[in-house]
């Protein structure tokens, strides 16, 4: 992410705090495609993903002051809010057990984007990330994927993989740091 992108996102949050709905619209347009794919991956349902995203954006509108730039980027914060909301819905739908069963067979890297118009640039970045993921140590990749895309906490990941919690923490850090080495530097600025 370019620094200007983070600055632009923070400026949007500041405008949202003054009640500027256009700022909310800008942030919505910028991040909804990313958040929707992410939430749908967790919930396996487009309708549930849309309802969840509605809650997410209302939460952003209500609680933009809870964003702390010292704890990561705006995009990262939005993804954390979306993940949390998606898991709340998951639990309320009592479908987590089914989803975990499905995830056993869905941990392979996802297929390429279907819609080329949605962007070449995003598609190229996504392809690079998938290639980088494929180069990770399989244990690191698995720890990251089932935590992030299947919504498991680190202790749940440890139980799933039958390894100590500390090992999962290390694998997660090592995997993310390895990704940083494998991906072009401009993706991380």
């Amino acid at each position: 992410m370019a620094e200007s992108e983070q600055d632009r996102d923070v400026a949007c949050l500041l405008r949202i705090q003054t009640g500027d709905t256009r700022a909310l619209g800008e942030l919505f347009d910028r991040y909804t495609p990313l958040l929707y794919s992410f939430v749908k991956r967790i919930l396996k349902s487009g309708a549930d993903a849309e309802d969840t995203l509605q809650d997410v954006w209302i939460q952003v509108w209500r609680r933009s002051t809870t964003f702390d730039p010292r704890r990561g980027t705006v995009a990262g914060w939005l993804l954390t809010v979306a993940r949390s909301r998606a898991l709340d819905r998951y639990r309320s739908l009592s479908s987590r057990r089914n989803a975990e069963t499905r995830s056993e067979t869905e941990s392979a890297p996802p297929p390429a984007p279907r819609d080329p118009a949605t962007a070449a640039v995003a598609g190229q970045t996504g392809e690079r990330v998938r290639e980088a993921l494929a180069q990770l140590d399989p244990k690191q990749r698995q720890a990251i994927e089932i935590a992030y895309f299947d919504g498991l906490s680190q202790s749940e990941v440890a139980a799933r993989l039958a390894v100590p919690l500390g090992t999962v923490k290390s694998w997660t850090r090592q995997g993310l740091m390895r990704l940083r080495e494998l991906l072009p530097a401009e993706e991380w600025t």
């Binding site: 794919s37 993903a49 297929p111 992030y148």
Partner: peptide, 20 residues
């Protein structure tokens, strides 16, 4: 945290594009 949250965004962006 700054670096890892960029990593989180990149990971989410690796998912197939969906139309909302």
């Amino acid at each position: 945290l700054h670096d890892f949250s960029i990593g989180a965004k990149l990971l989410a962006g690796s998912l197939p594009a969906e139309t909302v």
